[in-house]
C-alpha cells in the first residue's frame, strides 16, 4: 500500500511513478509530486500501479503540469518562490496552450494550478472583443442581431472601451 508524504521526504522521493501521455511519451515523476494531483493520488491509493496512462492529455501539456507539480513538491522552495514560479509559469503562454492546461488540471484535479491558469485566461480575455471570445471558446452566436443589440443596449456604457482587441 502506498501512502503519501507522511513517510517523510526521503522515502517519498525515492518512489516514483511513470506517467504516459496520450501520444505515448513517458515521464518519470516522484510520487511526492504526483500526489499533488488529487486524481493521481487516488489512482496510486487504489492500486500499486507504477504506470499511469492518461488518454486525454498530450505530452506538451503533461510536461508543463509535471514541471508545476515537481516545483510545488520541492520542500526546499519557499512559498514566495513557488508563487513567483506560478506567475512565471503562465506568463507569455498562448490562450490555446492555457486552454489545454486548464483542461488537464481539471482531469488531474490540480486545483491551485487550475485557478492560476483560469486567472491568466481571464486577464487575457478582459480586453478582447466578443468575436474573439466566440472564436477561442468555439461558440456559435445564437442571438438574432436584434436580440444581441438589445442585450448590448442594456449595458451600453460597458462598450465604450476603445482598446478592445481582436487578436
Amino acid at each position: 500500500m502506498v501512502t503519501t508524504d507522511e513517510k517523510g521526504p526521503l522515502t517519498a522521493k525515492k518512489k516514483s511513478v511513470i506517467i504516459r501521455s496520450c501520444d505515448g511519451d513517458e515521464f518519470l515523476v516522484s510520487e511526492s509530486a504526483a500526489v499533488l494531483s488529487t486524481s493521481l493520488k487516488k489512482i496510486l491509493e487504489e492500486k500499486e500501479d507504477r504506470l499511469i496512462h492518461l488518454s486525454d492529455i498530450d505530452n506538451k501539456t503533461l510536461a508543463m503540469v509535471i514541471a508545476y507539480l515537481s516545483t510545488h513538491a520541492d520542500d526546499g522552495l519557499s512559498d514566495d518562490l513557488k508563487r513567483s514560479f506560478d506567475q512565471e509559469f503562465v506568463s507569455g503562454k498562448e490562450f490555446d496552450v492555457l486552454k489545454y492546461l486548464v483542461l488537464a488540471t481539471d482531469t488531474l484535479q490540480v486545483t491551485c494550478l487550475c485557478y492560476t491558469v483560469a486567472k491568466k485566461m481571464a486577464d487575457i480575455m478582459k480586453n478582447k472583443l466578443v468575436e474573439w471570445v466566440r472564436r477561442e471558446f468555439d461558440i456559435q452566436n445564437d442571438y438574432t442581431p436584434e436580440a444581441e443589440a438589445e442585450i448590448r443596449r442594456l449595458d451600453a456604457w460597458a462598450w465604450d472601451d476603445r482598446q478592445l482587441e481582436d487578436d
Partner: peptide
C-alpha cells in the same frame, strides 16, 4: 475562468451567446 473577470467585460460577454 469567467468568475475571475472584472464586471465590465462580463457585461459585454453576455452577448457571446
Amino acid at each position: 475562468i469567467l468568475s475571475r473577470l472584472p464586471v465590465k467585460p462580463l457585461l459585454r460577454f453576455k452577448t457571446v451567446s
